[in-house]
Amino acid sequence: MNIFRLFGDLSHLAAIAILLLKIWKTRSCAGVSGKTQLLFAVCFITRYIDLFLHFVSLYNTEKVMKLIYISASVFTCYLIFFKFKATYDGNHDSMRAEFLIVPAAGLACLINTKFDAIEILWTFSIYLEAVAILPQLFLISKTGEAETITSHYLFAQGSYRALYILNWIYRYHYESHVDTIAIVAGVVQTILYCDFFYLYITKVVKGQKIVLPA
């Protein structure tokens, strides 16, 4: 464990908590893409499938973190699609998730480190996570704005994988550890946030709201 991965995971936890708080406190999921949350839930379930395959003692934090990620993302989907369904902005959350899932699944079968079920599920989860934020960014571009709290969520979500890139640089340099698939997908994922990061740093930090030219 290094400082970059630690802060990356903390940033990821913060993102999940910010979103849950926003939906719970405002009792509304306006401006939140349900599809992105579904894709994240799929990512966690396919990536941490080992939790279901054999019971693991919960003593170590990593297993607890995996359970937190899975349960929090499933609970977020429950809030969006059931509890606060009336506030779900289905019309603007219109990016076809199939266009993300099918290519990620296909690519996972073609490019992976080992052709076995668990490894392909993990690879699929990595590829899907890289593009899972697209429906959310698409929704913001359609509505032309993002609530400040949603911007904070996106900043934390984007920072998590950006910090993981620093973690991979650190591990390459000190542990000569390289996981090409995770690195390439992580770089693609972070690049997708660049436009948002620019808007966040130039606007939200100054207290303005993000309003895209509609």
Binding site: H12, M65, K66, Y69, E119, Y164
Partner: peptide, 10 residues
Amino acid sequence: DETSAVKDEL
């Protein structure tokens, strides 16, 4: 190494 089945990152 990449082929390690057990992934040590979240």
